[in-house]
Simulated assay, not measured.
Amino acid sequence: MKKLLSVISLASIVTFSLFVFMAYLVNSDEVNIVDPLPDVIVDVYQTKPEKPAVDRVKKLPEPPKAPEPMPKVMTEIDPTLPTDGIGEILVNVKVPSTTLGTGDIFTKPDHDARPIVRISPKYPITAARDGIEGWVKLAFDINKVGEVVNISILDSYPKRTFDKAAKQALKRWKYKAKLLNGKTVYQTHQTVQLDFNMDQQI
């Protein structure tokens, strides 16, 4: 009996202690009040309503005008003309004959070499200083492209005074090559004389 009383008293004490502790906890809790967040304004943009489709009628270009009909040429056929047996009339047509030769419209005319570029010789300084005048006679060939080749001195006066200047100038000459039967050919045995005068020096 004593044990039962002691257990009941101990249970009563524990129960009372729990109620006291719970009351303490309830009184000591702090309630944190959170401020509400500001309202978020959402703008909703609406697209403009589409305009109804409009059917466009394309204008077709005006058709080109028909060309005027060619005037009909009426020809009278002599019934006495011979036929080929099936009703076709045989007519003799004379065609003028053409002959191709040198100088016609289909081929270039033949010609000898023609000068295109001529370079004057430089007057030698020593000859100009001493007032010496003279000339040089040269022989040369012209190749198929119009260049001057195989230059040689035939004669000169004074001797060897103007030879070098004359040859240097002649090397720079350009020709339109000789044409024979529509083809350029090599032309030989050409001669020229270059004069050296004080009043013409460059």
Rank of each mutant, 00 (worst) to 15 (best):
A128E: 12
V136C: 02
Y123N: 04
R118Q: 10
I125R: 10
N143T: 00
D130Y: 15
I119P: 02
I142T: 02
I132C: 10
R118M: 09
V149K: 09
P121N: 07
K144H: 06
V145H: 09
I125D: 15
D141H: 08
K144F: 07
A127T: 03
E133L: 07
G131A: 11
V149F: 04
P124G: 10
V145P: 09
T126P: 02
G146K: 05
E133W: 05
R118W: 10
R118A: 10
A128P: 05
D130G: 04
T126K: 14
K122D: 11
V149Q: 12
R118D: 00
K144V: 14
D130P: 01
L138D: 04
G134N: 06
W135N: 13
I125Q: 11
Y123K: 13
A127S: 09
R118C: 03
A127Q: 06
P124F: 04
D141S: 12
K144Y: 03
K144P: 01
V136T: 06
V149R: 06
A128W: 03
K122T: 04
G134T: 00
I125T: 12
A128L: 15
N150A: 14
E133G: 03
V149A: 02
P121H: 08
V145C: 04
A128T: 05
D130M: 12
K144W: 02
D130R: 15
V148Q: 07
E133H: 04
V148E: 05
R129F: 13
I142K: 03
R118P: 01
I125N: 11
K137N: 11
I119V: 14
V149T: 13
D130N: 15
A139R: 13
A139K: 13
D130T: 12
W135Q: 10
W135M: 05
E147D: 14
A128G: 08
I132N: 04
S120H: 08
R118V: 11
L138S: 03
K144E: 14
P124I: 02
E133M: 07
S120Q: 14
G131R: 14
L138K: 02
S120A: 15
K144M: 11
Y123G: 09
V145L: 12
N143I: 03
